[in-house]
């Protein structure tokens, strides 16, 4: 990579549609070569953020820099390419014609045969798009995105609506292409996809980033257990200071302690405080995801 700029710099993005705030002060920096999953439930603001990142819509406030320039310039120079949910295809062109036509719009592209092969659709090049399955059409969109050999590849929920086999084929195609400094940002609401493919996960909820870390770090959020107890007037700061405590939440008379050492916390609560009704629950990644993306309080 000749560029020393971050691949993506989003700074204080907000975007509202009427009374609904889709993106709410979102800032994110992605370095070249990172594979980042944008993980969140439907309506979290992922697509709106991606639209702004690609220059398809303008933020109400905040700035977008892609590879050191504007999104429009990055698109026009083939430095960024994307596979979007809403990007349509012409049903009456063949797969091969669609690739050929799109290639004409660029100054320079990889050979059509190469992108077809890398997307795994060489065998259906002569098929009319209207007769391709959803998964095949999605791999065609992927082939189109590969044409300019982009520095940054953006994928918005690329496997939505595919069956299990289609999803597997698509990720296999993407993995085959995973290489050599290409930055990849993909939005998904499938936890396993983020886990399997990304090396960094950005969790979004209600237009904000609620967690951002390596896949291992995000998994660690879920590694511990939650100790819940009834403890009126709990000293939140004192509990948070205990060894092994990740987070403490007080909800009325209840206290929730997220920790890697639930035994020690339970012992502490029962012997050193007036806590009662102690419950210990384990958490998995799915719980962490749900907690972070749906609860009112995040990590």
């Amino acid at each position: 990579m000749t560029s020393t700029h971050p691949a993506v710099e989003l700074d204080g993005l907000t975007k509202s549609f009427g009374a609904v705030t889709a993106v709410d002060g979102l800032s994110l920096r992605v370095q070249p070569g990172e594979v980042v999953a944008f993980l969140g439930p439907n309506g979290a603001g992922k697509t709106t953020t991606i639209d702004m990142l690609l220059g398809l819509s303008r933020p109400d406030t905040g700035t977008v820099r892609v590879l050191g320039g504007t999104p429009d310039d990055a698109v026009a120079r083939g430095r960024v390419a994307a596979v979007l949910q809403t990007g349509g295809l012409l049903k009456d062109l063949t797969v091969g014609e669609t690739v050929e036509m799109t290639a004409h719009f660029y100054r320079h592209t990889r050979p059509a045969a190469e992108v077809l092969e890398r997307a795994g659709i060489t065998d259906i090049a002569a098929r009319v798009v209207g007769r391709c399955s959803g998964g095949q059409q999605q791999r065609l969109r992927f082939a189109l995105a590969l044409l300019p050999d982009p520095d940054l590849m953006v994928l918005d929920e690329p496997t939505t609506g595919m069956d299990v086999e289609g999803r597997r084929d698509f990720w296999q195609a993407l993995r085959r292409d995973a290489r050599r400094g290409r930055t990849v940002i993909f939005a998904t609401h499938y936890l396993d996809e983020a886990d399997a493919y990304a090396d960094r996960i950005v969790l979004v909820r209600q237009g904000r980033i609620v967690a951002d870390g390596t896949t291992a770090e995000i998994k660690n959020l879920a590694a511990g257990r939650t100790v819940r107890a009834t403890l009126p007037g709990a000293d939140q700061a004192a509990l948070a200071a205990l060894p092994g405590v990740d987070a403490v939440e007080v909800r009325g008379d209840s206290v929730l302690v997220r920790t890697g050492d639930s035994d020690a916390i339970a012992r502490h609560l029962l012997t050193r405080t007036a806590a009662r009704d102690v419950e210990i629950t384990s958490r998995n990644l799915e719980d962490a995801f749900l907690a972070l993306t749906t609860a009112q309080t995040g990590a």
Partner: peptide, 14 residues
């Protein structure tokens, strides 16, 4: 082409 979303696809090209 607008209904199919092709116009939007084209906006991802130069």
């Amino acid at each position: 082409e607008r209904a199919l979303g092709w116009s939007r696809q084209l906006r991802l090209t130069p």
